[in-house]
């Protein structure tokens, strides 16, 4: 802000502010107050005009045009800053691969007619749909119309693109930057896209709410008119079932049920009592240690001059085994 005789002048808003003015004596009458403020106001307006009329101007038919500086007084925005749109999947891919857009000519050479035609639209060059004869290929299946296949393929491609577009728009909506003219229906989107989307109710939720509403009359919905297509409530009234305590023969149903539950619980928690994996590893480790210890002992003994001992032992052990076997 410039200070013009201690006035603050904001030329962008054509505003001037006199922060030092005080009424010397409180104006007694209304007319006095008006007069005083108009006098002061004139000074302020003159201060704005002094700077405004001294700005360089360009002549126009309607009068001299002056370029105003941007406003100095900061005022809040009306809406948030526009957010950058998230890149689409293709854009991400293209960036990763370093693919760049390049301009194509509007016209293209048409080989059939030998003329230049526009690339897209009506009467385009090299129109694939406009081919009267297709060459048969080895891969062609007999009985299938290649033209129909071509059409179907095209339709699929268009459908796929539409799906991709939808996905990208959903992504943009998540960030909160849907193009303002697009609305994703099934949700009541705000007009500017500046608010978060309301959550969509599922079918089940709607069903349960409808059921609650239907049974919330005094009669529990007994005498209400049913709407067309309204289905009866799924869970009405009783939810718990009690089994008969006394069964016919041997064990009752209730006993069976509790046993089932108990078994399940025990079997479920049995692994907590005995961790099979851990047990196996422990067992293996122990065994290995044992074996290793034996090996060490044997190796130590073998280093000395006592090879015969083992040899002597072996037959004895075998003898023992054979003896055992005989015993059996």
């Amino acid at each position: 802000m410039d200070t013009h005789e201690a006035f603050q002048v904001d030329l962008g808003n054509l505003m001037a502010f006199d922060p030092h003015h005080q009424f010397h004596s409180v104006p007694s009458s209304r007319a006095e107050l008006v007069e005083e403020s108009l006098k002061r106001g004139t000074e302020l307006v003159q201060a704005i005009a002094d700077t405004l009329f001294n700005l360089p101007s360009t002549e126009d038919i309607d009068g001299p045009l002056v370029r105003l500086p941007p406003p100095v007084t900061r005022l809040p925005r009306e809406k948030h800053m526009p957010k950058p749109r998230p890149p689409t999947k293709w854009e991400e891919f293209a960036k990763a691969r370093g693919i760049k857009n390049r301009k194509k000519d509007k016209v293209q050479y048409d080989e059939q007619t030998g003329t230049w035609k526009r690339r897209f639209g009506y009467d385009r060059a090299n129109d694939e749909n406009n081919i009267p004869i297709l060459d048969a290929k080895m891969t062609d299946e007999p009985g299938l119309d290649p033209f129909a296949k071509k059409r179907a393929d095209k339709k699929n491609r268009v459908g796929k693109q539409e799906k991709n577009r939808m996905q990208n728009l959903k992504q943009a909506a998540k960030v909160g930057d849907l193009p303002s003219h697009i609305q994703l229906s099934a949700t009541s989107l705000p007009i500017t896209g500046s608010q978060s989307m309301p959550k969509r109710a599922t079918k089940e939720e709607l069903g349960s709410v409808a059921g609650m509403a239907a049974t919330s009359t005094a009669s529990g919905g007994k005498f209400d008119k049913k709407l067309a297509g309204e289905k009866p409530l799924k869970h009405k009234g009783k939810h718990r079932k009690f089994l008969p305590v006394v069964g016919g023969k041997g064990n009752s149903l209730e006993k069976e049920q509790t046993e089932k539950v108990m078994n399940k619980l025990i079997s479920k928690n049995s692994h907590e009592i005995l961790n099979v994996n851990k047990a196996i590893t422990m067992y293996n480790v122990k065994k290995e240690k044992k074996w290793k210890g034996k090996q060490d002992k044997s190796s130590r003994s073998s280093s000395n001059l006592k090879p015969k001992k083992d040899i002597q032992k072996k037959p004895s052990s075998s003898k023992a085994s054979s003896f055992k076997g005989k015993g059996k």
């Binding site: 403020s37 108009l38 105003l68 007084t73």
Partner: peptide
């Protein structure tokens, strides 16, 4: 003051036609 400025200032413009200046608001804190 801020609210009044926002209310009264009209459109934010880049160019102004000096011949079209014809009004002023005066606000006095009494």
């Amino acid at each position: 003051k801020e609210v009044l400025l926002d209310l009264l200032r009209g459109e934010v413009i880049e160019n102004i036609n000096i011949a079209g200046i014809d009004r002023a608001y005066v606000c006095t804190a009494t």
